[in-house]
Structures are given as C-alpha cells and as structure tokens.
Simulated assay, not measured.
Amino acid sequence: MTQTIAFIGLGNMGGGMAANLLKNGHAVHAFDLSDDALARAQAHGAIPADSAAQAVAGADAIVTMLPAGKHVEGVYGGDVFGAAKPGALFLDCSTIDVGTARRVIDAATARGFDMVDAPVSGGIAAANGGTLTFMVGGTDAAFDRAKPILSAMGKAVIHAGGPGNGQAAKICNNMLLGATMVATCEAFAMAKKLGLDPQTFYDISSVSSGQSWSMTSYCPVPGVGPQSPSDNGYQGGFAVGLMLKDLKLATEAAAAVNAAVPMGNAAAALYQLLVNQGEAARDFSLMIEMLEGK
C-alpha cells in the first residue's frame, strides 16, 4: 500500500532512505535545514517543504533521521506532534539515547499516536541500496504498521521489543563492533611486528576462531579481504566520530543500569584519541594506524 510519508532529516543516511521510499511508490514530503540536501531529495522526486510542520501536514507516516536525542525531542515536541493528522504513524530512525527514545514515544502515545524507534545498521551504501537492517522498538501494533515502510528501505526489519529497545539493540551492537574492530586492528598490527604477512594472517584467522565481521567483511588492512574503506585511504564508511557517538551512548546506558562494559569503555577511550587527533571524519578502521604509531 502506497502512503504519503513525511521525511525529516535528509543527510548522508536519510537522503538514500527517502529515495528508496520513492522508488517503492510512496509519496515523500521532505524537509531538511540544508538546502542542498533538500534539493537532492527533490531531484529524486520528493516534494520539498519549507518546514517540518509543512512536511508533516496530511502525511500518513513521519520518518525522522536526526543527529541526536535533543534534535528528535525538539522536532517532535516543537512541530511534528502539533501538525500531524490523527492516526499518523511516527518512525524515528535516528540513533539516540534510550531514555529520550522512550520519553518521545510516551509523549506520542499520550497524544494517541503509534510510534517506533527504528535505528539502522548498514551505513551509507546500505541506505542508498535499500539494504539496511532496522532494529525496532515499540508495541506490536506500532511495529506491524511500521514494518512495510521500513521494508521499503531495508533488507531486515526486526522487532526488538517495547519502546526504546531498538536503540538498546543498536548501541549494544555498535559497542560490540567498536571493540571488535580495535581487537582486529591490534591483532594485525601485532602479527606484522612478529613477522607474519597480513594476507597470510588473514587467510588463517578468517577461517579460525578469531574470525569476525571486522576482519572478513571490513578488514582494516589495505589490500586484504573484500573491498573496504582501508583500500580508499580510510575515506567513506563509518566515521570515527559516529562510532565514538555510539560508544558514548552505550557506555552511558551501561552506567545507568550498572552493566559492566570494560571493553566498551576501552574502545570509547581509544576512539576519543582518534577524534582528538583530528580524525573524526575518516573511517573507524583507521584505528589500525594509530595502534601502529602512524
């Protein structure tokens, strides 16, 4: 069933996601503070709006893809709740803290709206290609309504449980990814110092107990394994600054529930060092160069 969907937040991820909604026959009313982002969305067929409220008016569903919890809370509380028609569905695909996600969903529910938190995994290429994974928090009814829309933008849509559980799944997953990438980088750096050829080490570990996604799908060593940002000067991919953001969300959530995350804390400290060195925009697998002292 095609719907009219308001899409707010058309950055590197949101732009590709909105384009895939259009490819699947939905009408998209788009808004972003960036004129360039809005122009790109319009070029794909979206109808540009002058404000979030204008985009939302009359929409069957509203998708948001915003930088942080304060932006999500500000947009919904400032424009979206008041402008949305009765029965509209809200889908927040931003990666934010669990507490804010639950607070905004509670506010939507109190106003009679269904809402899910649906952060994504997969990066810019997956957003453009429509192959994202969505981790969704919300009631069964809200998830059932959201799934067809999310499926137009991704390859997997998984119900993680009640409100906020999508964010919980996302930050736990990315904490694991961040720590695993650090371990992969230090193993390759150590292997090199011990006289092992990186390709030989990859050939062994990729089929042994040390195998991980960070090694076999996203190898941090240039020229080893499938094509990855390491083969392009660590440009593109998943930025160091975004990994640090997710690790901070994870360690803050861990502290709030008294969960022990020593590896998560260590990974966050190491990515903070990379950011301090001015590398926030490069891919997070750049960690290997720091560990090698480059």
Rank of each mutant, 00 (worst) to 15 (best):
A187N: 05
A168R: 15
N165I: 00
A160D: 03
V261K: 00
H29K: 15
N20A: 10
D117G: 08
P229C: 10
A250P: 02
G69K: 04
D231I: 10
P229S: 08
V98A: 06
G112M: 05
S34H: 10
A110T: 00
N20W: 04
M17C: 00
T131L: 09
Y218W: 12
D79W: 12
T200Q: 15
G9T: 04
K70W: 04
T2V: 12
L194W: 11
R145Q: 13
A267S: 13
A156T: 14
T251A: 08
T251L: 11
V224Y: 06
P163E: 01
N265I: 12
A269E: 15
A6Q: 01
S228P: 10
I62C: 12
M65G: 14
P48R: 02
Q227H: 09
A84V: 06
R40G: 04
A27T: 14
V261P: 03
N165R: 15
A179Q: 07
A256G: 08
P198I: 10
N276H: 08
F188R: 03
A142L: 01
F81D: 01
K170G: 07
L274W: 05
I158M: 10
L291E: 11
A141D: 13
G69S: 14
A160P: 05
D197N: 15
M215A: 05
K248C: 07
V72C: 12
A57K: 08
N20G: 01
K170T: 07
A126Y: 01
G137Q: 06
F201T: 02
M115V: 01
